[in-house]
Design a binder for these strands. Sequence first.
RNA 1: GUCCCCAUCGUCUAGAGGCCUAGGACACCUCCCUUUCACGGAGGCGACCGGGGUUCGAAUCCCCGUGGGGACGCCA
Length: 464
Amino acid sequence: MQVRTRFAPSPTGFLHIGGARTALFSWAYAKHHDGKFILRIEDTDVARSTPEAVQAIMDGMHWLGLDYDEGPYYQMQRMDQYKVMIQKMISEGTAYYCYCSKEELDALRESQMQAGVKPRYDGRWRPEAGKVLPPAPADTPPVVRFKNPQSGVVAWDDMVKGRIEIANEELDDLIIARADGTPTYNFCVVVDDWEMGITQVIRGDDHVNNTPRQINMLKALGATIPQYAHLSMILGDDGQKLSKRHGAVSVMQYHEDGYLKAAVLNYLARLGWSHGDAEVFSMQQFCQWFDLHHITPSAAQFNTEKLNWLNAHYIKEMPLAELAVDITQRLANMAVTVHVAPDLQAVLGLYRERANNLNQLARDIAYFYSEPQAAAADIEKHITPEIKPVLAEFLIKLEALAWHAEAIHTLMNETVTAHQLKFPKLAMPLRVMLIGIAQSPSIDQVMAILGKEKSISRIKAYLN
RNA sequence: GUCCCCAUCGUCUAGAGGCCUAGGACACCUCCCUUUCACGGAGGCGACCGGGGUUCGAAUCCCCGUGGGGACGCCA
């Protein structure tokens, strides 16, 4: 049987890190089994769903390269199917009308909470053999409830948590259609997973409590029960739960914040899943390995430091031409225009070894294309009155030099030797003059790439 | 409150009864490299939540605690 997995977000916000990982795992599982990955938008909460959120989710998936084979399907466009199913269940006696008002239900819940029992519908409108139902009130439009079995247990072998059993006594008759006739989440999921032929339901573990209800409905419908895999959640860097109010950001924010998608993907894959000691791997490799085994059942805390480390790794690995395209854009965002010279790829080749963030990398090399502005403290510390004559002499020789790193290095060596100075005495002021800060790769290499003209003019500017 | 889930270094994790004196990675510390800052290299620090069983033997299996989380909606 062909594997079919799905990612089913509700479009009430952006694609956050937890959703992205769920999508990634579903996607990878389908890829691993040569199956299909389906995107389904669960937009039945009309009040909170927005087209912008749909777009944001698709943007996030697109950035990460989580392409879907089918969809997006929109639940709001499948109302007819749900209504057919609801009618079918009513006529078959596996669902029934309930005329309780919201107030009535609230009161019931309240009293149950107070009594210390699990709040649940008491089945007052549930038809039973020999039971006399109250007359239907004319002014209350009914909801439809699923007639959940009252005895026995629902059990499934969760692919990440193992066997889970829940007694039917714990479950009540959930509402599958609202008073206005629209179906509710749990019901739509059941119909969709069935009709779309989903073989593995991979989702967050906040859904384990929905699973027994869904299985019961699937059974009532005579549907095949898919396999379930419930992924634990991702906690923030501080160990706290991620929420709109606290730390949950869009995956696109990582792009803006200077992260490579390869790093984010690799990091997410490794969060709650492992393959022996493997830490760094491609998505191709991941899909080959990923079979839903070795997923950690416990919650995982996000660790930005490790993401940074992976980011550094992928910045080094990436083809220079590709890196150049990305950095050009980031420089443009900083109002810095990349010119033909110095050659951006050469600059990046020199600088990327030390970077773990694309924005940082862009900032580090901005001075190749814009005028540096050194801090007064650095100027005072490094460009001392004592060194200025040495620099002036160095500058004259520099002007006559054949411009390449080795020659510059040799000249620097000769200069410090002649004046009995330590190498940094010359290198540090050059850094400040040439790029505005005291940290850089080998300054001779920086000069070689910066170019003779710019190097000389920037030094001169300090020697008047 | 009721039900469900979870529990190995600070963090992500390896571990499916003996291979464990518990392995790897990030972070941290030390040293090396060095032209500053990084990169890199070599070392180091550092954990099986507690208590009972089962067993010749338990991080691994069972039970009970404890702690954390989730769910209990005409939200998804």
